[in-house]
């Protein structure tokens, strides 16, 4: 599904990613962990197509297509989804209108007929239920005046709507209380199937209690320095990152 090969990326001439390699197959959940400033969020931003980052080397294949040939909106329509760490407020555009537009654009891209209003409403009802989304919010402007938890739930609602092949959750757990965390995680678990994949970027192990990863990767200094199964996350929780830094240093010397 996603093949990342020797990916290098810079921001304002400062190299952040220094050779990321990662393979993600259908039906897998990958967790990416690592200390602050290691490049986790940069990786998600580069994949989503944020302009301020420059890819200097390497390639990314998404279902066989060169990801960097696609605009951000084309990537989304092809089935890539990024749940933002800080979802953006869009005053004056209602959630319903936003979702309807996004869905229309995706269906057009895939050569499908636009949905009828009744189909759309039915879908809206189902997805809202799936992610326990408060109906009161749907006619409000996207994220405008939402609490942190509401914003994150809105991300998961959008994810449910767009039904991506690959979803990247960028620190979706940050700023969430335990109930919101459970709702967000349940949403992901319900959407998970053998055809889609998830990348969960997080600082903390606690999200991984709810969304159990198949693989855990540790990013440090712009590279994946260690990979393992879910037990690696537990080990990190217990020991912190220092031992990994030490291992890397020893390797380099």
């Amino acid at each position: 599904m996603l093949k990342i090969r020797n990916l290098h990326a810079t921001i304002e001439n400062k190299e952040i990613l220094r050779g990321i390699n990662l393979d993600i197959n259908h039906g897998e959940v990958h967790a990416i962990m690592g200390p602050n400033g290691s490049g986790k969020s940069t990786l998600s931003a580069v994949l989503a197509g944020r302009e301020i980052y420059k890819v200097t080397k390497g390639e990314v294949l998404f279902d066989g297509k060169n990801l960097f040939d696609l605009s951000p909106e084309e990537r989304a329509r092809e089935g890539l989804f990024l749940a933002f760490q800080y979802p953006v407020e869009i005053p004056g555009v209602s959630i319903v209108n936003f979702l309807k537009t996004a869905l229309e654009e995706k269906r057009k891209h895939l050569g499908l007929e636009p949905m009828s209003p009744s189909e759309f409403l039915k879908m809206m009802r189902e997805k809202k239920e799936l992610v326990e989304f408060d109906s009161k919010l749907e006619n409000r402007a996207v994220n405008a005046g939402f609490s942190g938890g509401e914003k994150k739930k809105n991300e998961i609602l959008q994810m449910a709507f767009l039904d991506p092949k690959l979803a990247i959750l960028d620190e979706t757990d940050s700023g969430l209380d335990i109930d919101a965390l459970r709702i967000v995680a349940n949403g992901v678990n319900k959407l998970k199937n053998e055809n889609n994949s998830f990348v969960v970027i997080t600082h903390y192990q606690r999200l991984l209690d709810y969304i159990v990863p198949d693989f855990v990767h540790v990013v440090f200094n712009g590279r994946i320095v260690k990979s393992g199964d879910k037990n690696l996350a537990l080990e990190l929780e217990e020991k912190g990152y220092d031992w990994i830094k030490k291992e890397v240093d020893e390797l380099n010397n």
């Binding site: 302009e51 605009s71 989304a76 990024l82 953006v88 869009i90 004056g92 555009v93 209108n97 654009e105």
Partner: peptide, 21 residues
């Protein structure tokens, strides 16, 4: 960018924002 990342083309995203304004 947020709208683009949801598959909404740049022109359409611009329209939505200006219309809302």
């Amino acid at each position: 960018f947020y709208m683009q990342s949801r598959g909404i083309g740049q022109k359409k995203a611009r329209t939505l924002l200006l219309t809302a304004f």
